[in-house]
């Protein structure tokens, strides 16, 4: 019985606010005559025709593929560079000013420059996503690697745990909660940049579709795209939570153990 109630409460917590917001939106927009802000009813009506057809494979899929490619590349670059920088105080002192400089450049500002260098194809769009996603991952990895337990550093030395074994079982593992935090931030940055990179000089993708709806004055369709983006965000964050719970299972166990031992 108790389990049922807890389960129910979790469901309410998950969908409660979205339902309230949708209801508010529904009634507030019901008699809107402004073309740019159509009633939610019309938005939902055009939703299936707009998205459950060719657009799913021709626009949504290319966007998600580019996001995946850019995000994965950013993960690799961020973690590799982060471990290198985090492990050495000298390297850190050397690169930190440059990192701060590069980090401050908003990736959307790079779009016109990248068009000239990398062309108007997928490369530019993926580079834009990497340019934004890499920072949270890199900086969190640096912090995570820098903050490893000094006692465990000594333990590794004593037991002659070194090289790849040390990297895999000690450095990456103890930095992993921080790395995951960075990866989560990078995911939302990636979704934003996925859309921005497609707004101009594009021939497919969600951003391209948005631009097309706007220039063609198809406002209900444009708003339905906003819903699609939100849904993509929710699905990706659920997916991320699943991966995180696997990767950080040891961490959660450890924290729980620490809590009970207090």
């Amino acid at each position: 019985m108790k389990a049922v109630i807890t389960g129910l409460r979790r469901v309410v917590a998950l969908v409660g606010l979205p339902i309230v917001l949708l209801l508010v939106w529904w009634f507030a927009s019901a008699d809107s005559h402004t073309a740019a802000m159509p009633p939610l009813k019309r938005i939902l009506k055009v939703f299936p025709d707009t998205w459950f057809g060719e657009r799913l494979t021709d626009d949504v899929l290319p966007s998600l593929i580019r996001l995946t490619e850019g995000y994965c590349a950013a993960l690799v670059i961020g973690i590799v560079a982060g471990v290198a920088i985090g492990s050495s105080r000298t390297v850190r002192a050397f690169v930190e000013p440059v990192l701060e400089f590069l980090r401050a450049i908003p990736p959307p500002a790079l779009v016109p420059i990248l068009f000239l260098i990398a062309g108007i194809g997928d490369t530019t769009k993926i580079l834009v996503i990497i340019a934004g996603c890499v920072w949270p991952i890199l900086l969190n990895t640096v912090e995570g690697v820098r903050g490893v337990d000094p006692v465990l550093v000594d333990t590794c030395l004593t037991y002659r745990v070194s090289g790849l074994l040390r990297l895999r079982t000690f450095v990456l593992r103890s930095a992993s909660p921080q790395i995951m935090t960075g990866a989560r931030q990078a995911l939302s940055v990636g979704i934003i940049l996925m859309v921005i990179s497609e707004l101009k000089a594009s021939t497919d993708g969600l951003g391209y579709t948005f631009e097309q709806f706007q220039t063609r004055f198809q406002y209900p369709q444009m708003w339905s795209g906003v819903l699609v983006l939100g849904l993509i965000g929710v699905v990706l964050s659920l997916l991320f939570r699943f991966v995180e719970s696997r990767v950080l299972a040891w961490h959660r166990g450890q924290r729980a153990a620490e809590r009970t031992s207090l």
Binding site: V24, A28, S29, S32, H33, T34, A36, M37
Partner: peptide, 17 residues
Amino acid sequence: LFAGATLVISAAACGGE
């Protein structure tokens, strides 16, 4: 929160008129 959301949305809905 609810009141705030209502306000924002209705303000947005009136914006064009």
